[in-house]
């Protein structure tokens, strides 16, 4: 085969634009539009009682990022219907990653989607949790031999709770929420800090499969 042309994203190339007064402005979007500061580790509060209280609040008010991948996203909508009603447990959907705490990877992740998932994950703020649904995120599931579907999610981002099944029913997802709550209340759900500590490893794994890495390393 002939060698493949490298595709360059036109929105992210360095370019010169003409300003309103006729002056030339050089725009390098990766430098100018993103901040490439690396993630920091945030220690929990010293006083145990505050940390416990905050962890309780975090556990009782889980805001889920509306990010659906694979077949599991269709299992998430029944959670909000009268039959399952996840609002009872303080679970709410947020449309923007800035306000969300929990990211649900709902099923198989192709490499193309993984890139978007990582971007969304990194935009979430520090106490952040990941819940992975289905056997696809655990060991690849029925897509274990696929050329563009990842096998293990925990190599690319720290996962707090796995919900097994293909696909898990909404009851199983509710049970997953309960397990996550227990984990948060015990102070074990430190995924964000884990990500910051092992940033090099995660990033190396991500870059191994995402070949056209045209974004900054960490885009909070």
């Amino acid at each position: 085969m002939e060698d493949k042309k490298t595709f360059i994203d036109p929105d992210l190339t360095k370019r010169t634009v003409i300003g309103p007064n006729g002056e030339d402005i050089t725009v390098d979007p990766i430098q100018d539009y993103f901040c490439d500061a690396l993630p920091k580790k945030h220690e929990p509060k010293r006083a145990k009682i505050f940390e416990n209280f905050f962890n309780w609040a975090r556990a009782e008010s889980i805001w889920v990022l509306g990010f659906g991948t694979g077949c599991g996203s269709i299992e998430l909508y029944p959670l909000l219907t009268p039959r399952f009603d996840a609002y009872r447990f303080g679970v709410q959907m947020r449309p923007t990653p800035r306000q969300a705490n929990l990211m649900i990877i709902s099923g198989y992740l192709s490499v193309k989607t993984l890139k978007r998932a990582i971007r969304s994950y990194e935009q979430m703020q520090n106490p952040k949790f990941v819940m992975a649904l289905g056997s696809c995120t655990i060991n690849g599931g029925m897509y274990f031999d696929s050329y563009n579907t990842i096998n293990r999610l925990d190599k690319y981002m720290p996962v707090d709770v796995y919900v097994a099944g293909c696909m898990p029913r909404p009851e199983a997802i509710l049970a997953g929420f309960e397990a996550l709550k227990k984990r948060i209340k015990a102070g074990k759900a430190e995924g964000a800090n884990l990500y910051a500590e092992n940033f090099e490893t995660y990033k190396a794994n991500q870059k191994k499969i995402i070949r056209d890495w045209n974004m900054p390393d960490y885009n909070w």
């Binding site: 920091k40 905050f54 609040a57 975090r58 008010s61 805001w63 705490n101 703020q125 106490p127 964000a192």
Partner: peptide, 14 residues
């Protein structure tokens, strides 16, 4: 109230 406490207790902000 819980949402309020949680939001004020977020660790990192930009």
């Amino acid at each position: 109230y819980i949402d309020l406490v949680k939001n004020y207790a977020m660790r990192s902000q930009i």
